[in-house]
């Protein structure tokens, strides 16, 4: 009896990984002899931006909050960096600007919530409006429909090596902070019980701001990767990231309420799964409606299975 339940809870814990494995196998089978190193590179390219933003965002989700303005934050950060490059012709300054702007946006987001006692989800919704308006205004200020960084310049940076480096270093750093520093451990604790956390000397405000700042680094990096990959920035650049991140993190096995069962790996697992799924949909050449339908059903199924643990008699809020 005891063993059975343990087994079940183990299975529940790895549902996301099982889903990932199934998707991967399906993809490989479908690709068949067209399998190539290029394919893996494609997967990396498509995964990395969502993965980086999601990984940073795990800190936010861990504290039990969520942020739907991440996509427009990436866009604003990318545009700012591109503008700086076009003024200074320095890739280094461009990179710094992107990180700084990412940090700044998330700082404003979280500081508003922390010091003015606002519910975070409302500030991020308001932030979404503000940032998307800002994107349009900034692009318009360039006098056209797009802002571009010279292709030849960023092309030198568009290498698998650099991307893998950024991904590995950032995820590694996040895992380290998450599991091996007081900061990460406190974030997790905060997500589980904010009152208890406060009564254990944990500053809720400080920690939630720090969580957003780490996400801000992810935003900055994603902005950089976006520009390196596609140096033409339009009003719709990065617009889908906001929702992609939520879907990826949840699909990857992160509990929506954060807390002790949170894990960094959810971001990568979820991002890769989503990319594989969309690749499969394209191979099957489904119409847009059908493929989104399949996606929604799979999403609900996986999330339901991985949420089987920790059910209560009452409805979850």
């Amino acid at each position: 009896m005891k063993k059975k339940i343990n087994l079940k809870s183990k299975v529940v814990e790895i549902v996301s990984l099982v889903a990932l494995a199934i998707l991967a196998v399906t993809y490989l089978v479908m690709m068949g002899d067209r399998l190539s190193p290029y394919m893996l590179q494609t997967l990396l390219n498509q995964t990395i931006i969502t993965a980086v933003v999601s990984t940073g965002a795990v800190f936010i989700y861990t504290t039990g909050a969520f942020d739907i303005s991440l996509g427009s934050a990436v866009a604003v950060s990318a545009i700012s960096g591109a503008m700086v490059y076009n003024k200074t012709e320095s890739l280094f300054l461009m990179f710094l600007t992107m990180i700084a702007v990412g940090l700044l946006i998330e700082l404003i987001d979280s500081a508003l919530a922390a010091f003015l006692n606002l519910p975070v989800f409302v500030t991020t919704i308001a932030m979404l409006s503000v940032l998307s308006a800002l994107v349009k205004i900034m692009i318009a200020s360039g006098g056209g429909a797009k802002i571009e960084v010279p292709r030849a310049v960023v092309k030198t940076l568009d290498s698998v090596g650099l991307k893998v480096l950024i991904l590995v270093v950032f995820i590694g750093l996040c895992i380290f902070i998450y599991n091996y520093t007081a900061l990460g451990r406190r974030e997790k604790f905060l997500g589980g019980n904010p009152i208890c956390a406060k009564l254990t000397g944990i500053s809720v405000k400080k920690l939630s701001i720090l969580a957003f700042l780490i996400a801000g680094v992810g935003v900055g990096l994603a902005a950089f990767l976006t520009v390196v990959r596609a140096p033409t920035i339009t009003t719709s650049t990065a617009s889908s990231i906001g929702m992609d991140v939520i879907i990826a993190i949840v699909f990857g096995g992160m509990p929506a309420s954060g807390g002790a069962r949170s894990k960094i790996s959810a971001a990568l697992v979820g991002s890769v799964s989503m990319v594989l799924l969309s690749q499969i949909m394209v191979i099957l050449n489904f119409s847009a409606g059908i493929s989104q339908c399949v996606k929604s059903i799979l999403f609900l199924a996986v999330v339901t299975l991985s949420g089987l643990k920790g059910r209560k008699a009452m409805l979850t809020r």
């Binding site: 690709m31 494609t42 596609a230 617009s239």
Partner: peptide, 20 residues
């Protein structure tokens, strides 16, 4: 392709086509 929303997604889609 899926419904493309920006330059980055265009590139992803092309890569996907190439891979296939």
């Amino acid at each position: 392709s899926e419904q493309l929303g920006n330059a980055e997604e265009e590139i992803s889609a092309i890569e996907q086509f190439i891979a296939q």
